[in-house]
Amino acid sequence: MAATAIICLGNRYVADDDVGCRVFDCLIGSAIPQGIEIFDGGLCGLDLLRLVEGRRRVVFVDALAGVADAGDIVVLNREQVAGYAGRYGHGAGLPYLLRLLPQVCAAPLPEIALVGAEGAMDEPAVRALAERSMEVAIHGAS
């Protein structure tokens, strides 16, 4: 298991939710530094727990809605994403996982970041998001 994971989230068949999948396609077709694994996390929320446990750093990539201005790329930490968690339901996603993570993670809590994008993204914007995600994976969010 690599120490760092980039987990791309979304549904490539739903236009408003496919940016994570497009970043996955971009990253998986490029050179990946040693020690980093790339995952297509699809629609999973709570089920991503096993991909998170045991790592030093985990970077999620996902679409945002109402968090930033259109076109912005934003990096949020675990607490910020967890703040969006409601109670569990079929629609529960990353915020629910990150809210519960300190209580359910079977290993030391990894450093967590969400690299997100607001609004429609053209191909150059997707590449920029992929590059930012890789930067955070290599160097951390700060």
């Binding site: 679409a63 809605a65 968090v67 969006y84 997100g116």
Partner: peptide, 8 residues
């Protein structure tokens, strides 16, 4: 559950 955008 087919759409999981992080929302505010």
């Amino acid at each position: 559950c087919s759409v999981h955008v992080v929302g505010a």
